[in-house]
Design a protein around this nucleic acid. Structure first.
Lengths: 220, 220, 220, 220
DNA sequence: TATGAATGAGACTTCATTCAT
DNA sequence: GATGAATGAAGTCTCATTCAT
């Protein structure tokens, strides 16, 4: 399994906490769960596999998580937090909603290119334990509203606009993770989303093409 | 579980075959599987439940399908065929690619409103046994290319356009099936897709708003 | 484990049913459960032990009984039925309530002498799945009421009289099964019970001493 | 869980010792075990539950008791001692064996009415760790022999008489703890036991009816 | 062809007990 | 002495699949 890009890995580890022995084991377990769930899918993964991957016994897993659902929940939380915070931080200086939206979209697709397994994991966690991933959508929704206020976007309804924003990025992530996407797929998809949100095609493409700002390193 | 709309139900039944006793039992099994899978999800459903719902024993299930995957495959085939053929038939007289595209999109969302369980089943089958659902995408791809030839659409890449087409419709189906969509969500989503494909917003909305043509009844 | 006396064994087997293959396996399982539960006690016994004793796999056990409780229930039913019916049948010709009561008491104690393990099993089943054993008490209660009507017994309350009848027989069974009872313990206990129920000591002893009627063989 | 009557609680606490810190922790643990075992039964109770109820960790439990059995043993000892000593002390001034016996019987039944959970616990401990409860029987046996010497009782054998004494009191405690006993059940049962031991019914009832002497308070 | 009892591998989960800190 | 994380064996129960009838 390809590793997470270092910048995200730092945040992921940080999200797992860093206390005494208990928290270290817990972090190992969530880490192990990430690998196992990514490999075989949550429903096919077993607690015994998670335990083995973490180098502990099944009993230990249950000392930390009461059920398979609960470990998925913890993983979902840490993963969504890591990815979301990194992206939010990198977008922070950008004031133009259109550009913010394009960057967000492309970053998720970029993740799918860099770490296909982690991207698929993120998608599966979104389906199993949607709570935390829903917060990602809240950020997108804020950018959408900002764009509307900025007259960059004009949409028939927030709901339909969000359908485009979330639906396209998920579909694109899947294709990219599967290795079936053409080059610059992220740019093309982002441009189409901006067009859907009401922007002029030429401008949409111009904005989608701009270089991605770096993901800022994590600082405690 | 709300039934399939009659027009689709006819085609679904037809897709299951109509031969001798063997085919009838097989059809019962696929039908039963549809209900059971819709109720509990494929991975939580058991062969015993399918057998019971079909009024046969587990042994009989294995006389017709070699494995749980295979029955999902058969269900996926029949369901995709029924829905796809009905939509294709209803669109057939329409020559304008933009309108064809909007109708297709809206019909899937309509299905989610009419028969939420069946729509979720379709989405799950698309994930488990993607083969047949991919054919639906082929039809959409044909319409996309037609629209490009007709200068109705202008897209940076076929792949990104298809991401919009498939991603939005899936997201919209999920929301509608969950009962969380505003009225006319299908229209708004279809309009946004047309905009993404390069159409003028006003025209996109005008086309998306047109009445849906009836699904033609099935004729042997 | 000492076998059940033949007359009871016949009834026990009969109570397990005698149908097709399914019922035969089920009977094997209940039989096996009797041995395993008697050996290790219900709460220490495992389904795997029951399965092994029956010569099947654990899966098979669960084809017949949904839980460990359920197999205890089935065993309790068969065992209580066998013992109870045999005793009731042997008592049937006796009209004197005092004698009926004495015979019933002594028969249970006799069982503890003949088949200590089965007696302990009966006592444990009475604690775990009291339903069927409660029917035994109903028979005793009927004899108690009969004795009151016959002016053989005179008691301050039915409840306290039943406490004597059930409490003494259980305590006596335990002691006899443990091999810690003196000879003729059944007679002495029965005499004391009759005294408690209001009979003259001499008469109580005379009745308690009478030979036990045979347990009639089981006829279809 | 209804508390023990204060007089018994004092003795129970005293029986747990009163030394330094070690003994205090030990006492807490036995106390906690009483509650946990009473709530869920010994075999369903867990060491973790005992630890939590005592406000310590599992490791601490094992600093005081080598096994689950051992803590049951300690509890059994303390509980039997408390109840037994209190009853013995209250009976001490009574010289008539019949009255002593009736008082003992009724006191146990009274405990079942006052503190049903504790009574059930006592019964379960008697089954699990019989050693200490057997000492209670020794006291009853002494009274039985006294009664025989006093010509108050006349029994065919000590063993059968003890069966009545122990069997009836246990059955009565169970019924009373379950809330299924009529008023004055203790009196009626005690009277029947005296009758079984050879007393005249009228006299038995007269003695059983006498007011219970108070349980004397515990004095270091 | 249908039956359905039997299989058997394996899942999740619990818990008495140990031991390094 | 207390802690509490870790252990690991064992238990209950599930279910896709097989096969004799």
């Amino acid at each position: 399994m390809a590793p997470l890009p270092p910048v995200l890995a730092q945040r992921f580890v940080a999200a797992l906490g860093t206390g005494g022995k208990r928290e270290r084991t817990r972090a190992q377990l969530v880490h192990a769960a990430a690998h196992v769930f990514a490999d075989r899918g949550w429903s096919q993964a077993t607690m015994a596999q998670v335990a083995e991957a973490a180098g502990v016994t099944t009993g230990t897993v249950y000392n930390h998580f009461a059920s398979k659902e609960e470990i998925a929940e913890a993983l979902s939380l840490a993963l969504a937090a890591a990815v979301n915070q990194a992206i939010v931080a990198s977008i922070e200086p950008v004031k133009d909603a259109a550009q913010r939206m394009a960057i967000g979209q492309r970053r998720f697709v970029w993740l799918a290119a860099e770490s296909p397994s982690w991207a698929c994991l993120l998608l599966e966690m979104a389906a199993i334990a949607p709570r935390h991933v829903r917060e990602v959508e809240q950020d997108a929704l804020r950018d959408l509203r900002l764009g509307v206020r900025q007259k960059r976007f004009k949409v028939p309804s927030e709901e339909s606009a969000m359908e485009v924003v979330t639906g396209v990025v998920q579909a694109a992530m899947r294709r990219v993770a599967a290795g079936a996407a053409p080059p610059r797929h992220d740019v093309a998809c982002a441009a189409l989303v901006l067009r859907a949100l009401g922007m002029d095609p030429a401008e949409a493409m111009e904005i989608a093409r701009r270089p991605l700002p770096d993901l800022p390193p994590f600082t405690g």
